[in-house]
């Protein structure tokens, strides 16, 4: 498989077939927490895409140039958490100083995703899948886009839920969880497509 085809495969599977939220059930907390209104959905998705891409690049570098030479690969989880947390803080400071408009739109969401499981998952997956640096970055970015897609789709579902009248005992979170389950089942339809498309 050519490099370009491999990147496309990564992108497609991260957004659709292996969608972090709807297929792998990671990052459910922001998925339920932020999906109430469309603007915060966009803000959160932007922040996640940004952080996942950066984190992929940085953790890949740390892993291959620090952990592998010292034979410390078993430390990857704790080192990755440390690096991601510091990175997000640093990005926040830099954005605040140099790009205030971007800080204002992403700012409040950045601390929320510092130790988000999806961000950690994408970095660890990059290592286990033996991706190179470019593939890792594409993986991170498209995983973020997949997260954004799930969030925005579900935001629409919740808008419809507001108008619906569920039975009393299902009001609020129960009906939201059921709707989330149904939304995630729709993504099962993508299963197996990616391999056929790009082979």
């Amino acid at each position: 498989m050519s490099e370009a085809a491999k990147l496309l495969l990564i992108a497609f599977s991260m957004i659709f077939t292996e969608n972090y939220v709807l297929v792998q059930f990671l990052a459910i907390c922001p998925f339920l927490g932020v999906s109430k209104n469309f603007d915060s959905c966009l803000g959160m998705s932007g922040a996640v895409i940004f952080v996942m891409t950066l984190a992929s690049a940085v953790t890949w570098t740390v892993y291959h140039f620090l952990l592998v030479p010292f034979d410390l690969t078993y430390l990857q989880t704790i080192v990755f958490i440390l690096v991601i947390a510091a990175l997000v803080q640093l990005v926040e400071i830099v954005l605040k100083k140099f790009i205030p408009p971007l800080y204002k739109s992403l700012g409040i969401y950045l601390p929320l995703i510092t130790t988000n499981c999806a961000v950690l998952a994408v970095t660890i997956l990059n290592i286990t899948e033996n991706y190179n640096l470019l593939e890792a970055c594409v993986d991170g970015m498209t995983a973020g886009i997949g997260f954004g897609l799930a969030l925005i789709l579900f935001c629409g579902v919740r808008k419809a839920l507001e108008r619906a009248k569920p039975p009393k005992c299902f009001e609020g979170l129960p009906i939201t969880l059921i709707a989330a389950a149904l939304t995630s089942m729709t993504f099962m339809g993508f299963a197996g497509i990616a391999e056929k498309l790009f082979h």
Binding site: V62, L75, I78, V79, Q89, I93
Partner: peptide, 14 residues
Amino acid sequence: LVLGGVGLVCGVLL
């Protein structure tokens, strides 16, 4: 040492 070093570098940087 490595973990401490990473922590220290991150801390100093921040």
